Computed example of a mutant assay.
Amino acid sequence: MSQLQRLEIPGDREWDAASSAVSDAYFPHTLTPLNGRSTADDVDLAVTVLGPLRIARIGWGAEVAIHSDHPGAYGINVPLGGVLETSVAGHTVVSTSGFATVNPPDMPAEITRWSDTCTIVGVKIDRDFLQQEVVRVAGDPAATIPDQLDLHSPEGASWFRLVQTLAAQPTDDPLLANPLVAEQLAGSLTDAFLLAALPDDPADRLAPRPRIITRVLDALRADPARAWTAADMADVAGVSVRRLQEGFKEYVGRSPRECLVEIRLAKVHDELVAGTATSVTDVALKWGFTHSGRFAAAFRHKYGTPPSHVLRD
């Protein structure tokens, strides 16, 4: 069941208790403090759970080493500061701010140095869920995911912004506790990661773009309230997500997601003008808007007035 939660380690901290809490929140592991005089007093932990994906903020407040096999899931670790040195299959990856270390599932990994100033944002993605999305995004189940991701690239930066946005959502947000919404957000986040991590496939470039764009737009107009992900749209088009996005940019000048938002806004506007709606929030939710603030800003940008004014008029 999808859920959203935050965990904070309480007052009197010990290393065993801290390690156990992090194991429950992220991955089971073996912890070795590297400074015998250090304590667990400054451990920091928070976690957001979204169906097959979870986002954890972890800081030990001391230099440590970690061993984990990452059972059943990928672990993508993004240092917010400090240094993270990880060895997987004899290959060492050193990540600092602006880079992410990608740990494959079911494979022993040694974090030989997690510096005392290093707090990470870790993203745990279920192995089978990610592999399903690899096929939909890249069209190749054998696509190789690299062991490090550069967050300075446009795709990498976009993915990490989405990670931070979801991690910052309030714990009492009922929409994120909804299993369907959580699954959609997990899919969007996973697709964004794969677009940043996987190389472009030149074989995709021969797709007849105007035809696939028309096919997708027809599907969006037919069911705008559906919880569309980028991979869902690519399935309709019969191409990879990257190729679909490039086609929309070339022929439409907007992304598929931007086109979907415009279609949904028009539906909301029509219903508000017709006077059949009793609540802006209800009609926005009906047409697929799950974030009231972003919906209101998009509506005002497009129509020049808040949706509440259209409803009153």
Rank of each mutant, 00 (worst) to 15 (best):
M107V: 13
R54P: 05
T101W: 07
Y74C: 02
A73C: 10
P28K: 14
H67S: 12
V43D: 02
L53G: 01
S38A: 15
A56H: 02
L31P: 03
T86R: 09
A73F: 08
G59P: 02
H70K: 07
A56I: 04
T32Y: 08
V94Q: 10
P104R: 08
V88F: 11
D106T: 07
V93Q: 08
L80H: 06
S95T: 13
A40C: 01
I120S: 12
D44T: 13
R54W: 06
G36Y: 04
V49C: 11
V102M: 06
P105G: 09
V121Q: 13
A109Q: 11
A65D: 07
V78W: 07
V93S: 14
G90E: 13
F129R: 02
T96S: 13
I120V: 15
W114D: 06
V49K: 08
L80I: 03
I76Y: 05
P108K: 06
P52A: 07
G51A: 14
T101A: 15
D126F: 04
T48F: 07
P33S: 09
H29N: 12
N77Q: 12
G81N: 10
A73V: 12
G81I: 01
W60P: 00
G36E: 12
A89V: 09
L53A: 03
N103D: 10
P52M: 05
C118W: 02
V47N: 02
V121Y: 13
A100K: 07
G36V: 07
F129H: 14
S95Y: 08
L45Q: 00
I120W: 05
D128N: 14
A73P: 03
N35F: 01
P52W: 01
A62T: 00
L53P: 00
T86D: 05
R127H: 15
A40Q: 01
I125H: 04
R127Y: 08
D44L: 13
G122N: 11
S68D: 10
T48I: 09
L50I: 05
H91I: 15
V64C: 02
